[in-house]
Amino acid sequence: MAIDVRVPTILRSYTDGQKAVEATGDTIAELLTDLDAKYPGLLARLVTDDGALHRFVNVYVNDEDVRFLGALDAKLGDGDTVTILPAVAGGAVLGGAVAGGAAALS
């Protein structure tokens, strides 16, 4: 089934500047794999080498954050809309744990 995917500005370099694209899949993982086939490089910006959703990105199915729906295993149905937003976070903490993250989305 075709799922409408909303892409944030920072990732549109991968989608030929398109704000919304279509992809197919029964789960978020399948959807992102299909997206990556159409727009190579996108997957690595969203999923870590360990196969988990990146800390630097929020992914929603309709109104719900996929972190509450099983993350990459979140199920998709006909007519669902997936929205990708870069996480807005930060702060004064000196975080070695998140260093190098800018490259994750840019």
Partner: peptide
């Protein structure tokens, strides 16, 4: 504008801030 406060340090982006900054415009 995307704003936030630092409550004990200077008003300059930390490494964490830079890591997360996802809205270049």
């Amino acid at each position: 504008i995307i704003y936030h406060s630092h409550t004990a340090t200077e008003a300059y982006p930390s490494r964490t801030d830079i890591s997360f900054a996802g809205w270049p415009q």
